[in-house]
């Protein structure tokens, strides 16, 4: 039974990952990413991590992908990327070779090595207590300091995002810099006018 769950979850994950890498339309890639996140959530449940599965669906599939989709739609960058053009000669081949090498090394380590390490004495998994209850207890005792640091990190991220993305008042827009960074098409027009 667990094999069925694992194979199904693994298939969903793999298809989603393949979609993210190969779809030329960013919206399709984001939807494939949701598939991967759901597959991972299924595998979390199969491994008795119910709390993380719920958080995975809510935070990743829920908010992060929606954030991606918001940015795609708002900016209108949902134009399909031309996948035929290879920016640097041989880049694709080199990237695939690097990816296969990464996968081969990781799988070799998994297959050839044994799982070592002491079983926990600090936070053993207690099957009698619900998983979210256990995580809450560990999080607010052993990991309390890290948890508090996390809140500071989130505040910094929010302030940073607002600062980066806000609409600047006219006095703060550096017009000269915009002129120094023209899109390639604008450069061509300017040179044409100079030539005539």
């Amino acid at each position: 039974m667990e094999w069925v769950v694992f194979v199904l979850g693994a298939l969903i994950c793999a298809l989603g990952a393949f979609g993210v890498v190969t779809r030329s339309n960013p919206v399709h890639a984001a939807l494939s990413l949701i598939g991967t996140f759901f597959g991972i959530a299924v595998l979390f449940i199969a491994q008795d991590a119910e709390f993380l599965a719920a958080v995975q669906v809510i935070v990743y599939a829920g908010s992060i992908v929606v954030l991606f989709l918001f940015v795609i739609m708002l900016l209108g960058v949902d134009t399909a990327e031309d996948l035929e053009v290879e920016p640097i000669t041989g880049q694709r081949t080199a990237a695939v070779v690097a990816g296969v090498a990464i996968a081969a090394v990781l799988i070799f380590v998994v297959v050839a090595g044994a799982i070592t390490g002491a079983t926990s004495s600090a936070a053993p998994i207690d099957t009698d207590v619900a998983n979210p209850v256990q995580i809450g207890r560990v999080l607010f005792t052993d990991y309390l300091w890290a948890f508090e640091i996390t809140s500071i990190l989130l505040v910094i991220a929010v302030v940073g995002a607002v600062t980066l993305a806000r609409h600047r008042p006219d006095g703060m827009v550096d017009d000269e810099l915009v002129d120094e960074l023209p899109a390639p098409a604008v450069v061509a027009v300017d040179e044409g006018e100079v030539a005539t």
Partner: peptide, 19 residues
């Protein structure tokens, strides 16, 4: 490991910052 490698290949191949 396979998912990690797929992500790495995508990061190297794709040119859209969002992807």
């Amino acid at each position: 490991a396979l998912l990690f490698a797929a992500g790495a290949v995508g990061l190297l191949v794709r040119r859209n910052a969002l992807i």
